[in-house]
Amino acid sequence: MTLAHFLAVNPPYWVETLTKIGIGLVAVLLPTGALVYLFLFKMMSFMQSRLGPMEAGPYGQLQLLAEFGKFLQKEDIFPSKADRFVFAAAPFVVLVSTFMLVLVLPAGPDTHFIDLNTGIYFAMAVSSISVIGILMAGWGSASKYSLLGGIRAAGQLIAYELPLVLSVVGVVIMAGTLNMKGIVAAQADFGVWFIIPQFLGFLIFLVAIQAELTQPPFDMPVAESELVTGYLTEYSGIRFLLFFIGEFATAAVFSAIGATLFLGGWTIPFVDANAEIMDYIGPLVLAGKMILIAFLIFWFRITYPRFREDQLQRLAWKFLIPLSLFNIVVTAIFKVVF
């Protein structure tokens, strides 16, 4: 998106850059906060027959700020044997991958940070950077629990990267482009959102992002009843907060990617996708669809117990990957035939 588009003037380069950084922060933190408040605080509480936060602000709405302040105040503890640089850098690596994912998300015909021709390819690629951050956290903490958690996370993320990418391939075949905006446009042209023809792909995508996010039932890396909290065990204060933001921001971004790929992105049926008004309501529509998918993610998270490591790998390699390959083949056949 260009600022000129909104302001009708051409600002200097540095103003535009700063503005983009600001918008980027808002684009990551606002949905994250919304997810945490809506789902983690309120929906989870209601599902567990309790009220959740009620004291801070009306209906507990300021609880997020309170939590934020709490984490900022806490001591930033380094374990005495930790590899200090690796330990300190790990949360930022995780966060970087999340921020880079947002770059390619289109939220309107002209509302986007960059319009890469290989957008979805780029997204899938940078999403794996978080593995490195998690491994760094596991190794740098100099704790056995963290190490086990980090290694589990690495094994799991690599295993579920494959079905994630393969489930997207079906959409890419149908759209005929790797460009995210192109995929949205293709859905508008196709008539129905890709969730209908690619329902199997959507299911695989959901399972795979659940695993990528290490949310239950795939939360083996942070299994609190065995590994305390896995690679997060030794983190406190601001660094824990960064991991926390990273986790839920990634949930938000993956939901948004899912909304873009399967639910038509910023478009609304029977409204011209390229109308100028869509630049303004597009982000809201996308946020709405993102919350729909995030609801599913959190619903599973709150309901299910977790898989064991071997069961989780078996599910990925023996079930999801063959299934997604099957999906690709079927999609390709239909594409060629029709």
Binding site: M47, Q48, S49, P217, D219, A223, I302, T303, P305, R306
Partner: peptide, 16 residues
């Protein structure tokens, strides 16, 4: 037991 297996919701029902 459900909590030990990662399903946090059951314990709230139990306590309730």
């Amino acid at each position: 037991m459900a909590v030990q297996l990662g399903g946090v919701t059951a314990i709230f029902y139990a306590f309730r």
